[in-house]
Computed example of a mutant assay.
Amino acid sequence: MSIAVVGSKFKIEEPNNNKPEYIIIHHALAKHCTIDDIQRWHLELGWSGIGYHYFISKEGYIFEGRKEEQRGGHCKQGDMNSRSIGICLEGCYQEYKNQTDKDVPAKQLKALFNLTKHLQRKYNIPVSNVKRHHDFAPYKLCPGNYFPWEEFILTLQEENILPDIDKHWAKDNIYKVVAAGIMEGFPDGEFKPNLTVTRAELATVVANLLDIM
């Protein structure tokens, strides 16, 4: 799976007062765009920069926008900008001019799943607090009526990767390689970081690396 986590290149002047209790999912309302496009659009609105903390391309690449500790600019209702992490997906998953996408790419969904699970564990956010922008701003369809929301939430509820690494010395690196799609948990939902890797697991890791390169 071709996923990379790219660090933020934007200097955004916002206070470091974000205390994440929620994860809020958006779409860009644009069939094709980049994180640079969104940065430009938000600057043109007079904002300090991109309002989202993360952007995920259709190819499954994860880009950092604002720092997680910075107040967001993606959901003003309920003071969510200081209580959540905002994730934006490239694409337009609703009927809108000539921009409409009716299918969310599998790579993008997988990257969203990995990032969401990582953020849930990092901030102790329950699945019930993983929300659509629409849940706070009902006049919007965001992230679109074509986004498979019920299936996505069900997957978050059923899959529980990495429950046994929270206190492991290498947890940050483990989160990174899992978010990058290089390694995953075992079928029983555990990661077992202290076990010796098998040849089959090593072959899978190398194959995923070759796919990314």
Rank of each mutant, 00 (worst) to 15 (best):
L162C: 12
A106H: 03
K9C: 11
I12P: 04
D188I: 13
G49D: 01
Q108P: 03
F136H: 11
N17K: 11
L29N: 15
I24C: 03
G49A: 10
I212G: 08
Q157R: 15
R66K: 14
I23N: 00
E159W: 13
I212Q: 09
Y52A: 09
N160G: 12
E95C: 14
D79S: 14
I182Y: 03
G144S: 09
G72L: 01
K102R: 15
V6C: 07
D37L: 03
Y146K: 08
Y123K: 02
F10E: 03
Q77Y: 07
K97P: 03
E59D: 07
N173L: 11
Q99E: 08
I182G: 06
D103T: 14
Q77P: 03
Y96D: 02
L115T: 04
F113V: 08
E90A: 14
I125D: 00
G7Q: 11
P163L: 06
N17Y: 08
F191I: 02
N114P: 02
N194F: 10
H42Q: 13
H26L: 12
Q39E: 07
K31G: 08
F10Y: 12
G86Y: 00
V130G: 00
N208T: 05
C142H: 05
D36Y: 07
E59N: 12
C88Y: 07
C75R: 01
L202R: 14
P105H: 02
Q77D: 10
G185F: 02
V178C: 13
P187H: 13
M183C: 14
I12Q: 09
L162R: 09
P20I: 03
D164G: 07
W47C: 11
W47D: 11
Y139D: 09
P143Y: 06
E190S: 15
K102H: 13
P138Q: 09
Q157D: 12
C88F: 08
H27L: 08
M1W: 06
K58Q: 13
W169D: 11
A106L: 05
H53W: 06
N16Y: 12
V206T: 11
Q77L: 08
S84L: 01
C88L: 10
P148D: 07
V197A: 12
L43W: 05
A207E: 05
E151W: 03
D135T: 00
I56E: 01
P148Q: 04
L43E: 10
S48T: 11
N160D: 14
H133P: 00
E159K: 15
G65Q: 04
A111W: 01
K117H: 05
D36C: 06
T204W: 05
I125N: 00
K167N: 15
E158W: 07
K131C: 06
Q94Y: 09
G7W: 04
I212Y: 08
G78Q: 06
D37R: 05
I50E: 01
V206H: 09
A106R: 04
I153V: 15
R132W: 04
W41N: 08
T198H: 10
L109I: 02
A200V: 04
M213P: 00
G185E: 06
I153T: 15
Y22K: 11
I35C: 10
